[in-house]
Simulated scan of single mutants.
Amino acid sequence: MFTGIVEELGEITGVEDQGDASRFRVRGPVVTEGAKHGDSIAVNGVCLTVVEFGDGEFTADVMAETLNRSSLGALGPGSRVNLERPMALGGRLGGHLVQGHVDGTGVVVERKPAEHWEIVKISLPADLTRYVVEKGSITVDGISLTVVDAGADYFTVSLIPTTLALTTLGIKQPGDPVNLEVDVIAKYVERMLGERAAAPDPGATA
């Protein structure tokens, strides 16, 4: 489980095509400190498993399902990526509960700079619209953000200077894809309410 608080802006240093998968090599001296084989690291919001590590880099295998569902397939050597290690049990939850399981991708539609922040508009797939609400939480490329405005096919977020300087959202331009993960609590609530509505009334008579 992650929090959506990016620890480091890393870099893809290599991509090995393995047919139905790819092996990524990622530079991230902060997140690899103390790393072990099998550890999890979120790369642009996608939970990946460490295969090898050393000299401030790690490798991770990315299967076809992940490449197709996320924007990782568009990355290559030199691409910058947001990196985060899992939250330690008992640690502070600085953002919100993030699983590292991408629900879909959006596209940066527009950027509107202001004096001390920037508003970014991002397209929203139709099947995710019901989970995104004004002032709710959403994860964009692994970054925990608060929704400013939620439309039928888009949402906006307001980015502070720290987010612009230390994450990929500072360099993403209109047309660039981003990974989206909606609030998992909303999905659980929807599932439970749906099952409750479908359950027979125990007090009903035939």
Score class of each variant (00 low, 15 high):
residue 78 G to F: 04
residue 78 G to Q: 09
residue 80 R to T: 14
residue 80 R to Y: 11
residue 80 R to F: 08
residue 80 R to Q: 15
residue 81 V to T: 12
residue 82 N to V: 11
residue 82 N to D: 10
residue 82 N to E: 08
residue 82 N to L: 06
residue 82 N to P: 06
residue 83 L to F: 12
residue 83 L to Q: 00
residue 83 L to R: 01
residue 84 E to L: 05
residue 84 E to A: 12
residue 85 R to L: 03
residue 85 R to Q: 07
residue 86 P to K: 02
residue 86 P to W: 00
residue 86 P to G: 05
residue 86 P to T: 04
residue 86 P to Q: 01
residue 86 P to S: 01
residue 87 M to S: 13
residue 87 M to W: 03
residue 88 A to R: 15
residue 88 A to F: 07
residue 88 A to P: 10
residue 88 A to K: 14
residue 89 L to M: 11
residue 89 L to G: 12
residue 89 L to C: 11
residue 89 L to N: 14
residue 90 G to A: 03
residue 91 G to H: 09
residue 91 G to Y: 04
residue 91 G to I: 12
residue 91 G to S: 15
residue 92 R to D: 09
residue 92 R to N: 05
residue 92 R to I: 12
residue 92 R to C: 07
residue 93 L to N: 08
residue 94 G to F: 06
residue 95 G to W: 02
residue 95 G to A: 06
residue 96 H to C: 06
residue 96 H to V: 01
residue 96 H to Q: 07
residue 96 H to S: 09
residue 96 H to I: 08
residue 96 H to R: 08
residue 98 V to E: 01
residue 99 Q to K: 06
residue 99 Q to I: 10
residue 100 G to Q: 02
residue 100 G to P: 05
residue 100 G to M: 02
residue 101 H to V: 11
residue 101 H to F: 01
residue 102 V to R: 00
residue 102 V to L: 12
residue 102 V to Y: 00
residue 102 V to T: 04
residue 103 D to G: 00
residue 103 D to T: 00
residue 103 D to H: 00
residue 103 D to K: 00
residue 104 G to P: 07
residue 105 T to C: 15
residue 105 T to I: 06
residue 105 T to P: 02
residue 106 G to P: 02
residue 106 G to H: 02
residue 106 G to Y: 00
residue 106 G to F: 00
residue 106 G to V: 07
residue 107 V to L: 12
residue 107 V to F: 10
residue 108 V to C: 13
residue 108 V to M: 04
residue 109 V to C: 13
residue 109 V to P: 08
residue 110 E to D: 14
residue 110 E to N: 08
residue 110 E to A: 11
residue 110 E to Q: 13
residue 110 E to C: 06
residue 112 K to G: 08
residue 114 A to I: 07
residue 114 A to D: 15
residue 114 A to F: 09
residue 114 A to V: 15
residue 115 E to C: 14
residue 115 E to L: 15
residue 116 H to I: 10
residue 116 H to L: 15
residue 116 H to K: 14
residue 117 W to K: 11
residue 117 W to N: 13
residue 117 W to H: 15
residue 117 W to M: 13
residue 118 E to N: 05
residue 118 E to F: 04
residue 118 E to S: 10
residue 119 I to W: 13
residue 119 I to M: 14
residue 120 V to L: 08
residue 120 V to D: 09
residue 121 K to I: 02
residue 121 K to N: 07
residue 122 I to K: 01
residue 122 I to G: 05
residue 122 I to W: 05
residue 122 I to C: 05
residue 123 S to T: 10
residue 123 S to E: 03
residue 123 S to K: 03
residue 123 S to H: 00
residue 124 L to I: 03
residue 124 L to R: 02
residue 124 L to K: 02
residue 125 P to K: 11
residue 125 P to Q: 10
residue 125 P to Y: 04
